[in-house]
Design a protein around this nucleic acid. Structure first.
Lengths: 104, 104
DNA sequence: CTGAAATTCCGATATTCCTCGAAATATCGG
DNA sequence: CCGATATTTCGAGGAATATCGGAATTTCAG
């Protein structure tokens, strides 16, 4: 994962509304949530929610799947793990890591 | 750590320039880096760097310490660990965690 | 086809962000 | 105090964001 990718994901998460959306999706588990179900929990206008969701989808943090008229949204754990990994490796390193982790 | 706190930190990191600044600071290790030394590595105008640094300091991700005329900047590992922790607990939980982690 | 439900697209507005150069401020050495 | 160095503050331009309401689109049921 490049620095720009990581920054894009962090930015996507770096908005209270969006972080809340994402967290809600995580808590919903594998079943996911429809956009309207999501809206009932996070509030706000549907168009706004849709907008935020797109941002999350764009960076790969959320996956959408159509089921008839409803669109199911799910958290993409892999991407989040990748992000946490990046943060841990690149940005949590103490001196020990700073010497070796340079290659990454 | 509240959702808003986490979002603020994520937002601070969610800018390529700032993420680069932070990462550079982490790699510098405990010794830290002065603002101008930092500038030599990340480029850009000093005023811009100062601005970004303030943002990082504001959310606690970076600590500054005066040494004469120079200001030493250091990454605050604790805060970053706290953030990664939050992400892991609140946003990486699979169903197993989603049931129990609700209290947090 | 028609009606209903779910979601996105289309403007619009207010706010915030990123970046810069220049001026101001702080600290030190002498 | 003076000069030099380091950093921040000020002011500004331009771009991007967050939010909204309503219209348009898609998909299903009958």
């Amino acid at each position: 994962m490049t620095l720009d990718d990581a920054a894009a994901r962090l930015e996507a998460l770096g908005n209270p509304t969006r972080l809340n959306i994402y967290r809600t999706l995580v808590r919903a588990g594998e079943g996911g949530l429809s956009v309207s179900a999501l809206r009932e929990r996070v509030g706000g206008a549907l168009s706004t929610l849709s907008h935020h969701l797109q941002k999350l989808v764009l960076v790969g943090l959320v996956i959408q799947e159509r089921q008839g008229t409803t669109l199911i949204c799910r958290a993409n754990y892999d991407q989040m793990h990748g992000l946490v990994d990046y943060l841990t490796k690149e940005c949590c390193a103490d001196e020990t890591d700073a010497r070796q982790g340079d290659a990454a």
